[in-house]
């Protein structure tokens, strides 16, 4: 594999313009700030908004209670099903987005001429497993009367957090290693989120559902291990220190 990190005319640092940088610093030293204080002023202004803010949105009520297994309803009695539905909706959205992240990674790896580390068929398997997990959570939500097509608050916030990952994976200029790092961020978060969801599902008394989720977690463990290993190998090879 060739080097993906190269030396060139990076112009962003001050060492590229030593004379101008000194000029800039000289002016800064004699130019006091135009308003007093420090960055605490930003925190205070944010606090005012925090105090006045509403929530980012709500969890929709079940579309219909008809057809919901009475056992499921009994188990949720006395608990807060909205919090559970919110996290189910979050996992559903993340797995569905995960399919698209893998689609982008597969396209990137397919086009990378020197890619000998990441097997495409294995990526395709991971992609399909993300799809299965999406469907698994979809069915789980339906089984308790929740609408799997609704975007829950946690799903929305996870979407905000993931925007940068999509950008990295689809930018033609990023390397396979850059993209593996982005997927690694996703898989690390995903792995932790499945563990939390399983614990929550068990506490909600949904043991069958929790068992299904355990199977998904085992596959996610495998995704994480492989992505971590490929990324590590690429970084070491790029630095010419791979053993």
């Amino acid at each position: 594999m060739g080097k993906s990190t190269i030396s060139g005319k990076n112009r962003t640092g001050i060492d590229m313009s030593p004379i101008d940088a000194k000029e800039m610093m000289a002016l800064v030293r004699v130019s006091p700030p135009s308003s007093a204080g420090n960055e605490q002023a930003i925190a205070e202004r944010r606090s005012q908004y925090f105090a006045e803010a509403g929530v980012i949105g709500s969890v929709p009520p079940p579309g219909t209670l008809k057809g919901i297994a009475s056992t499921a309803m009994e188990k949720l009695t006395g608990k807060n099903p909205e919090a559970f539905i919110d996290k189910l909706g979050c996992r559903l959205a993340f797995e569905r987005a995960g399919v698209r992240l893998y689609d982008a990674l597969i396209a990137k790896c397919s086009a990378a001429p020197a890619n000998s580390i990441v097997p495409l068929d294995r990526l395709q398997d991971f992609r399909n497993e993300e799809l299965e997990h999406f469907k698994l959570v979809e069915n789980a939500m339906r089984s308790i009367g929740a609408d799997p097509t609704a975007q829950t608050p946690s799903a929305d916030v996870d979407g905000m957090a993931s925007i940068g990952l999509v950008q990295v994976l689809t930018d033609p200029r990023t390397s396979v290693a850059h993209c593996l790092e982005a997927i690694l961020i996703a898989e690390l978060a995903d792995n932790d989120a499945w563990q939390l969801l399983i614990a929550l599902t068990e506490k909600m008394g949904m043991s069958d559902m929790a068992r299904d989720f355990q199977n998904a977690l085992r596959e996610e463990d495998e995704h994480l291990a492989y992505i971590r290993q490929w990324f590590r190998q690429m970084v070491m090879e790029d630095a010419a220190v791979a053993s």
Partner: peptide
Amino acid sequence: DTVAAGYQ
């Protein structure tokens, strides 16, 4: 003013 309070 808030954003640049004390900023150099």
